[in-house]
């Protein structure tokens, strides 16, 4: 183990975090409205729209049912069209985001479903419109659950980002694969796994901590 290796690992951690955080944030920007849409258009909800709900639920299910490794390959032309290349950290962000959106959407939908209908009813009785019902009542009530969901999703994206290493993405996944697997450097493999475990732990625990902090029920 020399200093080059350490700097490789350092670079890997940074790339992994970059991919994970950017993809997660992008996935949330699209996934939260998506999840809200799934919730409010559902049966008996404030903007019940059977057809819209069915279509969006179907799309989410399709993307969730494709194994991520397949999705990575499948999206290569799309990634090229957007970032100009399909190799490297930036390029990995595209499939990571696409693959995470439906996961986020479903998790958001589930968190919002935990809020009993009586809260919506109270909101309606105050003359709130649909937007206000979501923004002022349902989302604030679901916040602790949304937070712990975010921690789980971030850890999932981190796992996916390692897979991106297979098709030329950067990060710890690529490191483990290129040094550990192809060059039989077990120490690198071991160290990468250790770092990954630590990073996931930190993400998960801070999510739980924040969720606990803000939960008042």
């Amino acid at each position: 183990m020399n200093s080059t290796l350490w700097s490789l690992i350092g670079k890997g951690v940074i790339e992994t975090l970059e991919m994970t955080l950017i993809s997660t944030i992008l996935a949330y920007i699209i996934g939260v409205p998506y999840g809200v849409l799934l919730k409010v258009t559902g049966k008996g909800e404030i903007m019940e729209q059977k057809v819209v709900n069915k279509i969006f639920a179907f799309i989410a299910n399709v993307f969730r049912s494709i194994p991520f490794l397949i999705l990575l390959v499948f999206l290569i032309p799309f990634t090229r069209a957007i970032v100009g290349t399909s190799i490297g950290t930036e390029a990995s962000i595209v499939p990571l985001t696409v693959g995470t959106i439906p996961i986020v959407a479903r998790m958001v939908e589930q968190s919002l479903n935990e809020i009993p209908y009586r809260i919506t009813e109270a909101a309606k009785s105050m003359g709130a419109n649909s937007w206000q019902i979501v923004k002022e009542f349902i989302i604030p009530e679901a916040m602790p659950s949304l937070c712990s969901g975010t921690a789980i999703n971030t850890a999932t994206v981190l796992g996916y980002s390692a897979m991106a290493g297979c098709i030329g993405g950067g990060g710890l996944g690529a490191l483990a694969l290129n040094y550990g697997y192809y060059r039989y450097q077990n120490d690198v493999l071991f160290l990468t796994v250790l770092v990954l475990v630590v990073v996931v732990q930190v993400i998960q625990e801070s999510g739980v901590l924040i969720s606990k902090r803000i939960r008042h029920s």
Partner: peptide, 19 residues
């Protein structure tokens, strides 16, 4: 919605926002 703002309602289960 405007009319509902003149008609307040309270419930058996209170329906307060717990957060």
């Amino acid at each position: 919605r405007a009319t509902r703002k003149q008609i307040a309602m309270i419930f058996q289960s209170f329906n307060l926002l717990s957060q």
